[in-house]
């Protein structure tokens, strides 16, 4: 288990939410070796199956930003990496970085981190009061059309933006948050000839994200970094009559999770 107290201050921290990514799809692709780039960093068993803290982006991210990452299914009381001080918390221990502030972002700011946000789905586009809530939490935030859900190349541009941010923060410890938008609907364009989103195009979207992964890894080359990857919620493609998310179904609440260190000190 990673001791977050040995990370904070000495490592960059990259928190990535793979918006809408389902556990079953991500693990299937891992088993079929269709994620050749991510596979280099994931454990041999692949993605960890966890329960999302919410059933849609807004709810989940409020929880995630306060340290409530998706919950381990087999050990729901497993200690968390980051936690805001909360009397009676049963999921913190000596490995948990505990902060006074209400969010990880403010907690890390207080420790001298420069915080940056790269959106993302609509909740990060700053086009309404609601969609300014998350970006406003960070020292800097970025969103433009080509980073959003309708851009087939969003991940490439998101990771290139990350490269810029890293370059501009050579002297700073960085907390970088990226909300990957590619997998969120619409994703039909990742399958040649497809006219509608489906579980197949959802998988193709993840393959696209994987193909761009090295851009991000190269950006952090040589910098000690903790990477946290997680789905914020899944989505339904007709299972039991359900479509979409913000609903309670196992394809929505089961999400993938992974964490790893790069350039360990």
């Amino acid at each position: 288990m990673i001791n977050a107290n040995k990370i904070v201050g000495d490592y960059d921290i990259v928190l990535i939410t793979l918006d809408t990514l389902r556990y079953d799809v991500s693990q299937q692709l891992f088993k079929e070796k269709r994620l050749p780039q991510l596979q280099k960093y994931l454990p041999e068993s692949g993605w960890e199956k966890r329960h999302a803290p919410g059933s849609f982006t807004y709810a989940s991210h409020h929880a995630i930003f306060s340290g409530f990452f998706p919950t381990p299914i087999d050990q729901p009381k497993q200690e968390r990496l980051f936690a805001t001080q909360f009397a009676g918390s049963e999921t913190t221990n000596t490995n948990t970085f505990t902060f006074e502030q209400a969010t990880i972002i403010d907690g890390l700011k207080a420790k001298g981190y420069h915080t940056a946000c790269i959106g993302g789905v609509g909740f990060f586009n700053r086009r309404s009061a609601l969609s300014k809530v998350f970006p406003s939490m960070f020292d800097e935030s970025h969103w433009e059309d080509r980073l959003g859900v309708t851009s087939p190349f969003s991940t490439k541009y998101q990771f290139q933006k990350a490269e810029e941010i890293v370059q501009q923060n050579q002297q700073n410890r960085l907390f970088l948050f990226i909300n990957i938008s590619a997998i969120h609907q619409p994703n039909y364009f990742y399958q040649q000839g497809a006219k509608e989103d489906s579980i197949t195009t959802h998988a193709k979207a993840l393959e696209y994200v994987d193909s761009q992964w090295e851009i991000l890894m190269n950006a952090f080359k040589g910098r000690p970094t903790l990477f946290l990857l997680m789905g914020d919620h899944g989505t339904a493609y007709g299972e039991d009559g359900y479509n979409g998310h913000r609903l309670a179904h196992e394809v929505v609440w089961n999400v993938p999770y992974a964490e790893f260190l790069m350039n360990e000190k």
């Binding site: 087939p152 190349f153 364009f189 990742y190 040649q192 193709k204 393959e207 696209y208 994987d210 193909s211 761009q212």
Partner: peptide, 13 residues
């Protein structure tokens, strides 16, 4: 990338 010619995405890029 995860696509190649003649996939329209590669041209759209």
């Amino acid at each position: 990338y995860s696509f190649e010619k003649p996939n329209p995405l590669f041209f759209h890029l």
